[in-house]
Computed example of a mutant assay.
Amino acid sequence: MGGKQVTSEAPRETTGERSTGEPSRTEASLALSGDSTRLAQVRRFAASFLTTARGAAGVLVRVETVEAVQLIVSELVTNALRHAPGPALLGLSISDGALRIEVSDSSPVAPAARVPDPARVGQHGLEMVTALARSVSVETAATGKRVVAVVALA
């Protein structure tokens, strides 16, 4: 793994609702370190977040949307843990009928989707994320970058 140190720190989860003047905003985050062995946990975390939002906040979420979100978070977290040293942070927030997925990592290098090539094996993750999300962007942060995917819930 090119000298990357792998740690086994347990993920930290935070959830909550905050009043921002916006209608019904729900948020959660999951800190990850080291390796991609926790991808099943990342997918469960996203599904659980959406299930909770459906019940607690009355947000309409289709099963197909939950499955798409699980794929998106899996791909974005995999990229963050594979291509950046240090920990990653997954943030989920719902506002105005959309889910904002944020994955922050310590690398300043922005990911780039490759040209679609059905003969290529692998490296289709960002292609899939772009196809499933309403929008995908990269924001520069003081300590790296944040990849943001927005998914319509209704």
Score class of each variant (00 low, 15 high):
Thr14Pro: 00
Thr14Gly: 06
Thr15Asp: 10
Gly16His: 14
Gly16Val: 13
Gly16Ser: 15
Glu17Gln: 09
Arg18Ser: 07
Ser19Lys: 09
Thr20Lys: 00
Thr20Asp: 11
Thr20Tyr: 02
Gly21Met: 11
Gly21Ala: 09
Gly21Val: 03
Glu22Tyr: 09
Glu22Cys: 08
Pro23Trp: 02
Pro23Glu: 12
Ser24Glu: 13
Ser24Ala: 15
Arg25Ala: 05
Thr26Ser: 12
Thr26His: 12
Glu27His: 07
Glu27Leu: 10
Glu27Met: 06
Ala28Gly: 13
Ala28Asp: 10
Ala28Tyr: 08
Ala28Asn: 11
Leu30Met: 15
Ala31Val: 11
Ala31Met: 14
Ser33Phe: 00
Gly34Ser: 12
Asp35Asn: 10
Ser36Asp: 12
Ser36Lys: 15
Ser36Leu: 10
Thr37Gly: 12
Arg38His: 08
Arg38Cys: 05
Arg38Asp: 13
Leu39Asp: 07
Leu39Glu: 07
Val42Asn: 11
Val42Ser: 09
Val42Ile: 10
Val42Gln: 09
Val42Asp: 11
Arg43Pro: 00
Arg44Met: 13
Phe45Cys: 12
Ala46Cys: 08
Phe49Val: 02
Phe49Thr: 04
Phe49Lys: 08
Leu50Gln: 14
Leu50Gly: 07
Thr51Pro: 00
Thr51Cys: 03
Ala53Cys: 05
Arg54Leu: 04
Arg54Met: 06
Arg54Trp: 02
Gly55Met: 03
Ala56Glu: 15
Ala56Arg: 09
Ala56Tyr: 03
Ala57Val: 03
Ala57Asp: 10
Gly58His: 07
Val59Asn: 02
Val59Leu: 07
Val61Lys: 06
Val61Cys: 04
Val63Trp: 04
Val63Ala: 10
Glu64Tyr: 00
Glu64Cys: 00
Glu64Trp: 00
Thr65Ile: 01
Thr65Arg: 06
Val66His: 01
Glu67Thr: 01
Ala68Val: 01
Gln70Glu: 13
Leu71Lys: 09
Leu71Met: 11
Ile72Tyr: 08
Ile72Asn: 08
Val73Ser: 06
Val73Gly: 03
Val73Arg: 10
Glu75Arg: 12
Glu75Gln: 14
Leu76Trp: 05
Leu76Lys: 01
Leu76Asn: 07
Val77Ser: 09
Thr78Met: 13
Ala80Ser: 15
Leu81Lys: 13
Arg82Cys: 05
Pro85Asn: 11
Pro85Phe: 03
Gly86Lys: 08
Gly86Leu: 02
Pro87Arg: 04
Pro87Asp: 14
Pro87Gly: 12
Pro87Glu: 10
Pro87Lys: 03
Ala88Trp: 01
Ala88Ile: 03
Leu90Ser: 10
Leu90Arg: 13
Leu90Ala: 10
Leu90Glu: 10
Leu90Asp: 07
Gly91Lys: 09
Gly91Ile: 02
Gly91Ala: 12
Leu92Ile: 05
Leu92His: 05
Ser93Asp: 13
Ile94Pro: 12
Ile94Met: 13
Ser95Val: 08
Asp96Asn: 14
Asp96Ala: 14
Asp96His: 09
Asp96Val: 02
Ala98Tyr: 05
Ala98Glu: 15
Leu99Ile: 01
Leu99Pro: 03
Leu99Cys: 01
